[in-house]
Amino acid sequence: MKLSIFTVAAPDLTPEELCEAAAAAGIAGLEWRCKETPAELLQEKPSFWGNNQCTISPNAGDAEISRFRHAAAGYNRQTIAVTPYLACGDIEGTEQVLRLAKRLDASMVRVGVPGYDRSKPYGELFGQAVRYLKEVERLALEYGVKALVETHHQTIAPSASLAHRLVSAFNPDAVGVLYDPGNMVHEGFENYRMGMELLGPYLAHVHVKNAGWQSVSPGTTADHLNPVQWNSGWAPIANGIVPWKQVLRDLRAVGYDGWFGVEDFSGTFDTRTMLQAYADQMNTWMEEIE
């Protein structure tokens, strides 16, 4: 089983500390968060999407790239992905990150997908995404790095089927899908195995996290003639709605042999404990389903 860590989930560790902790937990793969960190955020305490200390800049120069390469090599870890926050249509930014991934020996890069908020029709956004992915496909083949569309809530690709509709016209050697069941708790749930079977050769990577739903007024008696409002939020990997043991069975059934990248946002454990708990839990589940 190939375990990796998307470093957005390790905001309080430096690249060197993250590689040390990953090695101690038996996590072999690294997915570097890629984003500029504004100067004002550097004064804040570490956080997932703010002052994340395990982040590489899209504009990284030789010294910064060398630091991340040496951190991985020093603990015999493998950089498998660079994961930025690209806007759909940003060809220049996409090529910049593909170039960075190539220098880090990464094989995958997450690319942009239009958000969906009811302000523009789906068809218009889909056309925009297809035009962008045509250019992305060309660049991915040129750089030898696969471009990934993530199943993500509040985008036009929240489910396996909608992600498949988006990528199905492209070469699966160049464009694939990052399958994220945790995101699909918020939006986009479909029978897991059916979605995997549909994705076929486009199923390129898997992120591992979990989430759940709660009433905004827990503990109160509902008026059955009025709607009850619900909110979704992150949960520990074993305690959310996603039945991960079943998902692992389904992935095995469709022949998936790729990476499993942890992205735990629950805040249940400190980062080092979370990494070890993730590795132990995934290995236990895989032993139980064999």
Rank of each mutant, 00 (worst) to 15 (best):
V185C: 09
N171G: 06
K146T: 10
P181N: 03
R131Y: 02
P158F: 01
D173I: 00
V130N: 01
S159M: 06
M196W: 06
A211S: 14
S217K: 14
V136M: 06
E190D: 06
T151L: 02
L148R: 06
G182A: 15
S161Y: 05
Y192E: 01
L162Q: 14
A169E: 14
A160M: 01
V177D: 08
P201E: 13
S159G: 07
G212H: 14
G219K: 03
L198E: 12
V167Y: 08
V149A: 08
I156Y: 08
G182H: 12
A160K: 03
P181F: 04
Y192G: 00
V149E: 07
H186C: 08
A174S: 09
D173L: 13
K134T: 14
L139W: 05
Q128E: 15
F189K: 10
L198P: 04
W213L: 15
A169V: 00
V216F: 00
G200N: 11
V167W: 03
R165G: 02
E190C: 04
G200L: 11
I156C: 09
T155N: 07
M184V: 05
G188I: 10
V175A: 01
S217M: 11
A174R: 03
K146S: 02
G144V: 13
A211Y: 06
Y192L: 08
V175G: 00
A169D: 12
V167G: 02
E137S: 12
H207K: 11
A169G: 15
E187R: 03
G188E: 03
H164N: 12
V145L: 05
A140Y: 05
H152Y: 05
N210F: 06
H205E: 11
V216A: 01
E137R: 04
A160R: 02
L133Y: 13
V216H: 00
K209E: 02
K134P: 01
N183R: 07
F189D: 04
N171D: 15
N210Q: 09
S161T: 13
H164L: 07
E137P: 07
L139E: 02
H205C: 13
Y132A: 07
L199C: 12
A147G: 11
L203I: 11
R165E: 15
V130Q: 05
E190S: 06
E142V: 09
V206E: 03
T151I: 01
Q214I: 14
P172H: 01
V216P: 00
Q154W: 09
L199S: 11
S159H: 06
F189R: 13
V175R: 00
H153C: 12
D173G: 10
N191Y: 12
E197N: 12
Y132T: 08
T155Y: 04
S159I: 06
L141T: 11
R165Q: 15
S215A: 14
H153M: 10
V177M: 04
V208Y: 01
N191P: 11
E137A: 12
A157V: 13
Q128K: 14
D180Y: 03
K146G: 02
G219D: 04
A163E: 00
